[in-house]
Amino acid sequence: MKRVLLLLADGFEAVEASVFTDVLGWNMLEGDGTTQVVTTGLHDRLKCTWNFTVIPEVTLDSVRVDDYDALAIPGGFEEAGFYKDAYDPRFSSVIQAFHAQDKWIAPICVAALTLGKAGLLEGCRATTYDHPTSIRKKQLREFGAIVVDEQVVVDGNLITSCNPATAFEVAFTLLEKLTTRENTLHVKDLMGFAGK
């Protein structure tokens, strides 16, 4: 079984979290049956950007990195308090522990900045929210990243992406890294993404 820890910050975007639960859930039932998602966060209850509330399955302080194969992190909104949790030392500590064991880490959109805050992006190719009005790419550079103008960037064990529209692609990329290309194409076909 490939276990994925879904690391949620207050103010996360629900759609960016749901792609992991859906893609990996579809794989569990209709693909090779090898993926499980477990949610965690710093609080007993987490509120997403648009006020949707989630109760994480495990507390972050009880997480044993050895029990997981990958880490997924949805982005969120500063106005909803995302960076308060996302830049918390406990968040960074978990991210660093996954990286130290060379496990896949898949943030979506601005969640790439959590990797920078954890000190993982120095000299790495990465991307983050790329709207022309945003300062996020500048912030990513300040963390030492080599910012790449691509939708999804894979560098070593890190997968980053440039906006919420890339969320499914990140989840499918993670599924392929955890299983196989053939299995991922099968799940994509069943979910209506064939040829995309």
Rank of each mutant, 00 (worst) to 15 (best):
W26L: 12
M191T: 14
R90P: 00
K117M: 04
L7M: 07
W50I: 07
F82N: 08
L5D: 03
D22C: 04
A80W: 00
T128Y: 06
G25K: 00
G11A: 09
T160C: 12
H186M: 13
G76F: 05
V63I: 14
Q96M: 03
H186K: 15
E182K: 11
T114K: 01
H186Q: 14
L174T: 12
F20G: 04
Q151P: 09
T160R: 10
E122A: 15
N27Q: 05
G116Q: 00
A100R: 14
H99R: 10
I73P: 03
A126G: 01
F193P: 14
V37K: 13
S93D: 08
T128K: 10
D61L: 10
G11P: 07
A106E: 12
A14R: 02
S92H: 07
S134W: 13
G41W: 09
K117F: 02
Q151F: 10
D10R: 09
A97I: 01
K47G: 10
G156R: 06
V37I: 12
L71R: 00
A171D: 06
D102T: 10
L42W: 04
L115M: 08
Y129R: 11
M1N: 09
G144D: 01
V94T: 04
T35N: 09
I146Q: 15
T21K: 10
D149T: 08
K2H: 12
T184E: 05
L8C: 11
L185R: 15
G144P: 00
L174K: 13
E13G: 07
V153E: 01
Y68C: 02
V38I: 08
W26G: 01
P89A: 03
D22K: 06
F143S: 08
E30M: 14
V94C: 01
L158E: 06
D32H: 09
A86G: 09
Y87Q: 06
T166P: 07
V38N: 01
F77E: 11
L5T: 02
L158S: 08
P164G: 01
T166Q: 13
I73Q: 05
E13M: 09
Q101Y: 03
K103L: 04
I146R: 15
D67H: 04
F12T: 10
L178R: 07
S161A: 12
I73Y: 05
L158R: 06
P89W: 02
L120W: 06
N27D: 14
N51T: 11
E182T: 14
R3T: 00
V110F: 02
V187M: 08
A118N: 03
F91R: 07
R125S: 08
N27A: 05
F168D: 04
